[in-house]
């Protein structure tokens, strides 16, 4: 074995432990590592392996887990058109988050990041949807879209036209869900951008002004480059968040009409848990976990530069 850091001589593991003991590090290690390690293993690592194992079984939730079916759950998943649709829907959510939600949040942040009382009021208003529980937002919007008793029904009645039932329409139902997702989360991204914009040094902006930069030039050449780290972080949250959308879909469409509006997670819930195919649900969970991991790691590599620094 080669030396780890140039000049240091190679130590046997026993000698290394002895040295750590002398430095007092060993006590700290033995005292502080186990609780965290045990909790992490018990509540994160173990369930992941357990789910991965379960995905090779057919299990209804009752009785012993003994019906091993190999990769059948995964084969079924690969063939299931509703799963394909839910993957496609999750991708649409990611695209909408990246190309509608984040530009919207950025624009608003640029408009209201300066500390004035009017801006504080706007911030509060724009951030309010994020504070609402997801399920509550879903229920509220289902009333808005309701063509009989809801807001859209009342608007249609006032205009004297036939009510439009957007959630019952295969073509537009998912558009309604995207609208609610954008509405719900843009305030969160806006807050990240506001915090970053407020940290942009005032003297840089002043210097740009003295050099003759206009409003847009200041935005594009000073502010945006300086908050790029926040934009990258925001985009990362948007992608991972879009993969996990669930609570909004259930009250709005419950996956319908004709299973056209499922996300990966609502698909997992409907086909795995509600229909008591726990093994099948575990297989969906494993696929989702892999998707999230791949996204996280490749995003670190691609967007966040070398070493993944923000």
């Amino acid at each position: 074995m080669t030396t780890m850091t140039g000049s240091r001589p190679t130590l046997s593991p026993a000698a290394r432990i002895a040295r750590m003991h002398k430095q007092g590090k060993l006590t700290a290690l033995l005292l502080f590592l186990p609780p965290a390690l045990v909790l992490f293993t018990l509540f994160v690592i173990w369930p992941i392996f357990n789910a991965a194992n379960l995905s090779f079984f057919k299990w209804s939730g009752y009785g012993a887990i003994d019906n091993f079916i190999g990769t059948q759950n995964y084969q079924r998943l690969a063939k299931h058109s509703v799963f394909h649709q839910s993957l496609w829907n999750s991708l649409k959510l990611i695209l909408a988050s990246l190309f509608i939600q984040i530009p919207l949040a950025l624009t608003l942040a640029l408009l209201i990041y300066k500390k004035t009382s009017a801006n504080t009021a706007f911030r509060l208003i724009f951030f309010a949807p994020y504070i609402l529980a997801e399920i509550a937002s879903g229920v509220i919007w289902s009333f808005i879209f309701d063509g009989d008793f809801g807001v859209s029904g009342q608007i249609a009645a006032a205009l004297g036209i036939d009510p439009f039932y957007i959630l019952a329409d295969r073509q537009f139902a998912f558009l309604a869900i995207i609208t609610v997702v954008v509405w719900k989360y843009f305030g969160y991204h806006m807050m990240i951008f506001i915090a970053a914009l407020q940290a942009v040094p005032e003297d840089l902006l002043e210097a740009a002004e003295i050099d003759g930069a206009g409003r847009w030039q200041k935005v594009f050449y000073v502010e945006l480059p300086l908050i790029m780290h926040a934009i990258k972080l925001s985009a990362f949250f948007a992608i991972v968040g879009a993969l996990q959308v669930f609570d909004i879909i259930i009250p709005l469409t419950n996956g319908g009409p004709s299973n056209s509006t499922h996300s990966i997670v609502s698909y997992l819930y409907t086909y795995g848990l509600a229909q008591l195919n726990v093994g099948y649900g575990a297989a969906v969970g494993v696929v989702l976990f892999i998707l999230c991991m791949v996204t996280a790691f490749s995003y670190r590599r691609l967007a966040m530069g070398k070493g993944g620094a923000l």
């Binding site: 009989d148 036939d162 009510p163």
Partner: peptide
């Protein structure tokens, strides 16, 4: 009725 695919059973009973 129009919009029947966005109508839950309890709401339909009310209608």
């Amino acid at each position: 009725q129009p919009g029947y695919m966005d109508t839950t059973q309890p709401k339909a009973a009310g209608l």
